[in-house]
Amino acid sequence: MLTPLSEQELHQLAMNIVGKEMEELGYEFLSINSKPKKDPQFVALKDKFLHFVVVRAVTYPANPVHYDEKLLHMMRDHGKKYKARTYYAGVGLANSRNYEMPVHHQDDYVVNFAGLIEIK
């Protein structure tokens, strides 16, 4: 029987994808919070600037670049207190055999990640 990934597992997968990308871009992690909706997920330094990154796992058919503006503007305002830049990282995940099916432990998946989106 196929077992779909839980919300926590989808979030962990998204965190791993974003974390790897940030590592490759030269970010130094100060804090990582892997709990879904406990924001920000990453607090990092790059080029002597503080960065807050909110990560969301988004399943098909939702668009991973669309975000909760109220939440992200609240995070941006919070970040300004620390002179931090705030980013949204939406990671689209879909079952590679059939986008309409949930992502399962037994199947490959497709990733739709456009990178970090700065919230200004």
Rank of each mutant, 00 (worst) to 15 (best):
L93K: 01
V55D: 01
P61Q: 13
T86M: 05
Y82Q: 02
N63S: 12
A89P: 01
F42K: 07
M74K: 14
V43N: 02
K81T: 14
P36E: 09
K81A: 13
L71Q: 11
D47V: 00
P64T: 09
A89F: 02
Y88K: 04
V55M: 08
K35S: 11
H51G: 05
K46M: 09
K38H: 12
K38P: 02
G79E: 03
Y67F: 14
Y60H: 13
K70C: 09
V55A: 02
Y82A: 11
H51S: 13
V65L: 07
L71R: 15
K48T: 13
K80R: 15
R97H: 13
L93I: 13
F49D: 15
Y67P: 00
Y87S: 04
V43D: 00
H66T: 14
L72F: 08
K48A: 15
V55T: 09
A94V: 06
N95H: 10
N63L: 06
V65E: 12
A89M: 03
A44T: 04
M75A: 05
V55K: 06
E69T: 10
G79R: 04
K81Q: 15
L71V: 12
M74S: 12
P40G: 07
Y82E: 09
Y82G: 00
R97E: 13
G92C: 09
K83E: 13
D68A: 11
G90R: 03
D47G: 11
L93G: 01
V91R: 05
L71T: 11
D47M: 09
K38R: 14
K81I: 12
S96R: 12
D68T: 08
H51K: 10
V54L: 07
M75D: 00
A57G: 03
N33V: 10
D47F: 10
G79F: 07
A44S: 15
F49W: 14
L45S: 06
K70E: 15
D39Q: 14
Q41T: 11
D68M: 05
V91H: 00
K80N: 10
N63P: 11
K46A: 02
L71I: 10
F49C: 15
